[in-house]
């Protein structure tokens, strides 16, 4: 039997640094993402992440990244959670084209969307101006957090800031790459600064984390559920054939947008009603999500996190 004292000491030390429960010991297998590019439209490739939370098992590969191959070179939308992922993404690109990667876009300042930047030293990395500022403030904190969450997958990963803010001219005129006409949109619902890209040539909408599908959305930096909801209406009104969410499967039509909008409205009402009844935060955390959301991956867990992020403002409104 294990010596209980040693076991206790060990678990205290591990708990101090482990953010997620579960796997504490990394398997001896080499850490490989095995990214499989999936052609979702002409010249357009998706690397689809798991609809999970960050873990030492998935190495943070819970995010969708994508690239478009044009005759003028490759455009990449988001670079993944680590340097290792960025290198794997480059390999995936090299497996379908020998064109150089010219432009890289970081959709927003969350770590799973920009920490692969180091693998793109020879490209120009763009983001919305506000995203650049958020990264300068919080990027290193996110990076440290990712080391704690996924461990050795992060080896040698450092934040590399975007090179350039997307200019007003580029926002209004878009970008022509080979036969592809790319248009950019500035949203704010998920983090205050969320880049959405529409390829007008193929009709593929890269919605970033403005959209989650079959994986519950996250709210740590939303400026407000009502803002996010209004912006989803704008997204829905756009002309697209396929939509790539930041997390979850690609869809045609508006199923993903409708699911999100439904949840955001429900969450808003849940928090409002709870605050009106004077519930304590723990009581609200303890309530179940509505039956209709239970099939969405991580719905209960993300609901609980969202209560922590959002409930204080609903409580304030009751004073």
């Amino acid at each position: 039997m294990a010596n209980p004292t040693i076991k206790c000491l060990f678990s205290a030390a591990v708990l101090a640094s482990a953010v997620l429960g579960g796997v504490k010991v990394t398997a001896a297998a080499p850490l490989q993402y095995n990214l499989q590019p999936q052609e979702i439209a002409r010249d357009t490739w998706l690397l689809q992440g798991k609809t999970e939370d960050f873990s030492r098992k998935n190495g943070g590969n819970i995010v969708n990244t994508a690239f478009i191959v044009t005759k003028d070179g490759v455009v990449v939308f988001d670079t993944g959670p680590s340097f290792r992922y960025g290198r794997a993404l480059r390999q995936a690109i090299a497996s379908v084209t020998d064109k150089p990667v010219v432009h890289v876009f970081n959709s927003h300042h969350h770590p799973d969307h920009f920490l692969g930047n180091q693998a793109f030293q020879d490209s120009t990395i763009w983001s919305l101006p506000e995203t650049g500022k958020q990264l300068a403030l919080h990027g290193n904190g996110f990076t440290d957090n990712m080391y704690r969450l996924v461990g050795d997958w992060m080896r040698d990963t450092e934040m590399r800031l975007p090179d350039k803010p997307i200019s007003e001219a580029m926002m209004s005129q878009g970008l022509e790459m080979g036969a592809h006409r790319l248009q950019f949109y500035r949203f704010s619902g998920h983090t205050g600064s969320d880049l959405v890209m529409l390829d007008k040539t193929t009709g593929v909408l890269f919605a970033s984390d403005m959209l989650f599908f079959q994986r519950m959305l996250t709210t740590p930096h939303t400026p407000g559920l009502d803002i996010w909801r209004q912006e989803l209406d704008k997204l829905k009104a756009m002309k697209y054939r396929k939509v790539v969410p930041g997390h979850g499967p690609v869809t045609e039509g508006s199923a993903a947008i409708d699911q999100m909008r439904d949840y955001l409205s429900w969450l808003d009402q849940r928090l409002k009603k709870s605050a009106e009844q004077g519930l304590e935060m723990v009581e609200v955390i303890n309530l179940p999500v509505d039956e209709r959301f239970k099939g969405i991956s991580l719905s209960q867990a993300e609901y609980r996190r969202s209560v922590v992020h959002l409930y204080p403002a609903y409580e304030d409104a009751q004073f």
Binding site: V19, I62, H110, H138, T218, P220
Partner: peptide, 11 residues
């Protein structure tokens, strides 16, 4: 209570 959770959260 376990330490800081969630992916996109900084202390």
């Amino acid at each position: 209570i376990d330490a800081a959770g969630g992916g996109c959260t900084t202390p």
